[in-house]
Amino acid sequence: MGHDHSHDHTDPPSDPALRVKALESLLVEKGLVDPAAIDEIIETYETKVGPRNGAKVVARAWTDPDFKSLLLLDANKAIHSMGYTGRQGEHMKVVENTAIRHNLVVCTLCSCYPWTVLGLPPVWYKSAPYRARAVSDPKGVLAEFGTTLPKDVKISVWDSTSEMRFLVLPLRPEGTDDWTATELEKLVTRNSMIGVEQALTPEKLQIIEANEKP
């Protein structure tokens, strides 16, 4: 007998996948969950939110001094004014990188993250080594991301909680004085708003865009 390639069944998915299906179907039956709302949330976080909201906030702060003052004073108000509202009721604080201070964001407890402006957290942000080492050896973590800072720059590490989420306002790269906010957005990476990297330089952006062309 040859290989029995059976079509009379479907291989069940992994155990966690079955658990999620069980949970969702029970919640739907009890009227506690609307399946359409679930799909919408997934879509929002996967495609619509992403770090682009954060990039828009940063680019505006670079080009609009009044907005920047408000952002540093009352980040929630400034971010809400751009139409981005959080769902967990957390407070946001924006910390500004300067010529003498670099900021790095971590959540040592779990993985609190400003989803509203950055989308979903990357895997490394959620890992225990990052969470521990961002505090014990921030310079080492930055070096692993290829980020080196001048000797006299101090690093501040900000520990996010369920009540307070931090977002880094990176330094505006040199050579961008005549750039518009829309152009500047492209320089603002997710990692620069977590603080593990600087914003892209115009040269780096050029290289990336060249690589992305088919």
């Binding site: 679930i38 997934i42 979903l120 490394w124």
Partner: peptide, 24 residues
């Protein structure tokens, strides 16, 4: 530290489902 996947941060669809259920 594990590398970040290119594209969506969910490794499998059930993770996105579980995430969305909690948020909802």
């Amino acid at each position: 530290i594990p590398t970040d996947a290119e594209g969506p941060v969910f490794a499998e669809p059930w993770q996105a489902q579980a995430f969305a259920l909690a948020v909802h």
